[in-house]
Amino acid sequence: MSNQRLVELAVGLFILAAFGALLVLAFEVSGLNRLSGGDTYNVSATFNNIGGLRVRAPVKVGGVEIGSVESIRLNQDNYEATVTLALEGDKPHLPKDSSASILTEGLLGSKYISIQPGFDTEMLANNDTIDETHSAMILENLVGQFLYKTSGKGKDNK
């Protein structure tokens, strides 16, 4: 009788431990709490070229993460990329004339969006658009321009 009771107790503890493990995986490892925690509002921005920006990439102000990229889609009219940002916080706190640029973490790191706050007293509200944007630097294009310029110089010297 008491043996059976011990077995039941052990199995119960086993199942509890497994569910505890699931919770750890959910909140500690996959960071689920940041997705569901707190209110967010959406702001969109249009870029000529997003150059490898991914959905769920961080949005930072002064290096501090304040949100993430919600969705990326192509605007069919002018072939520009419309990026929707989900920013944390229930009330808007970014000036209306803020500018967004796509930067790279380190030389080869992943892309993120950096927002440079402006000076307007009006704030960005839900579903507003950031007008001033800077597209991603494409390394290949830069190298191409550099090569073009240096080869042009070489011809001039001849």
């Binding site: 431990a17 497994a18 750890v24 490892v29």
Partner: peptide
Amino acid sequence: PLLVLIFNV
């Protein structure tokens, strides 16, 4: 599946 969860953690 329970063992796998524990293994992962």
